[in-house]
Design a binder for these strands. Structure first.
Lengths: 119, 119
DNA sequence: CTGAATCCATTTTGATACTG
DNA sequence: CAGTATCAAAATGGATTCAG
């Protein structure tokens, strides 16, 4: 039986989406920024167990994909604010759905990363 | 200012969801199985560039999280069918939303993994 | 304060050959 | 056919130190 290679737009877009939000901390960052812009130091507090390096990398990638916006203020000491872009905000309902899916589908969930810091 | 550690159920469930579907090939597997059950060999054809070993691992994990169902038939040669569970099916609308989000948010997407085999 | 640069540990992914 | 086993490669994660 002959086989034919075809394009599958659904898989393709799905893979792309996962590349963007599939990072270990990215959904958390997006979720936290949903409540408003934050500076680097605060994000670090909100996400325990993440190192500066990794947070920096994740933020860079999210910025490249235009999910978040990075605003640098020329002050001393320097201040940098991160916030969600329109594209990032469009992602929120989907992340909420994912969150709900987990809640309704699983009885128990436990992580270290469940704990976040409230200021 | 005092800081207090609290639980954040949203982040928690989100992280859990990403642990389950965040694997490199998992969303594709789920998407493909959405069209009906398939056996191992077919899945391998549908996902170019994936090795048997990796596909096996991903399927095992999806099975452990009860996203897919593995059915083994005692025949010769052996036959194994994979299909979506209820829990996995509940994920489909969300994956479709993700797919749509990518389509509307980005102009161009390109991957090697976009190509799948149609039988 | 923000984050770049190093160095190293761990995890993930893959190519290949082999088995019931 | 549907996997294992083994080895190797690559991506990712993280601790620490340095800099504007």
């Amino acid at each position: 039986m002959a086989r034919k290679i075809i394009e599958n737009p659904n898989s393709c877009t799905l893979v792309h989406a996962m590349n963007i939000i599939g990072g270990k901390w990215k959904p958390i960052v997006i979720y936290i920024l949903a409540n408003g812009s934050l500076r680097f130091g605060k994000l670090l507090l909100f996400i325990p167990n993440i190192s500066k390096k990794v947070l920096t990398e994740q933020l860079r990638e999210l910025e490249e994909d235009q999910i978040i916006i990075r605003e640098r203020f020329a002050e001393t000491p320097p201040r940098v604010e991160y916030s969600l872009s329109k594209r990032g905000e469009a992602l929120l309902p989907i992340l909420r759905s994912l969150s709900e899916w987990t809640s309704t589908s699983f009885d128990t969930i436990e992580f270290e990363t469940c704990k976040i810091v409230k200021l």
